[in-house]
């Protein structure tokens, strides 16, 4: 899922300083699962925005709503039901949601309520870790299912650097050296030979270095 975190409240209060009515819009997708922008977080942020405004001596009205997703046209169109009832939208979806609202509603003012972090998973309750960098050229079949692009601090493709000690990355003892983990896993699963395959110099154009990426599926387009 996409991992996000609520922005500091004072930052959002500042964004909506000119608004008297704000639509706080959550998303039931990834940000709900990582407790950053779901129904509960919308309720909390709306309350904090009202309190923040009141501290500045003004009254702020909020509409609280949560959409199934904010990364599909059909759901963004549903914002029409509140037309004329808000001066600005605070989207608690990931950056995709904010962009989609901006793309599809040219006259609406939209602000981000969260900082979008990474693609990851829940390591334990309340802790999420990055697992995938979305580089567009997956090599997990060669690395025991563990991603060196996202999980190696240097995104090395042919084994660990010299800073790896006792299975720990040199940037932080809490970060496992993913190449050590890849090595151990390949040995354990009888695929040691995969370690000998030399990864060629990588073409990073699929990772966004060639500009914004686009996927076209002719079998689905209408």
């Amino acid at each position: 899922m996409i991992i996000a975190e609520r922005k500091p409240v004072d930052e959002i209060v500042e964004m909506v300083a000119d608004a008297k009515r704000v639509l706080v819009l959550g998303c039931r997708g990834c940000v709900s699962v990582c407790s950053a922008g779901g129904e509960r977080e919308v309720e909390i942020l709306a309350s904090l925005l009202r309190l923040g405004a009141r501290k500045q001596g003004r009254e702020l009205k909020t509409i609280e709503a949560t959409m199934v997703r904010q990364c599909d046209r059909e759901y963004i169109e549903a914002i029409d039901q509140w037309a004329g009832k808000y001066d600005a939208i605070v989207s608690m979806a990931c950056g995709v949601g904010v962009n989609f609202i901006a793309n599809l509603r040219p006259d609406d003012i939209v602000y981000p309520g969260v900082n979008t972090g990474c693609m990851g998973g829940s390591a334990e309750q309340g802790i999420w870790t990055e697992q995938c960098a979305g580089c567009g050229n997956c090599v997990l079949h060669l690395t025991g299912g563990l991603c060196p692009v996202a999980r190696c601090a240097k995104s090395l493709m042919n084994g660990p650097c010299g800073g790896s000690q006792n299975g720990e990355c040199e940037i932080n003892k809490d970060v496992p050296c993913i190449w050590q983990s890849i090595h151990d896993r390949l040995i354990r699963t009888g695929r040691r030979a995969d370690m000998d395959r030399v990864a060629p110099i990588r073409d990073w154009s699929s990772a966004g270095h060639g500009g914004p990426r686009k996927v076209v599926r002719d079998d689905l387009t209408v």
């Binding site: 004072d10 909390i44 309190l51 501290k55």
Partner: peptide
Amino acid sequence: RALAELGV
């Protein structure tokens, strides 16, 4: 934490 962010 939220109160502190609001300067309270």
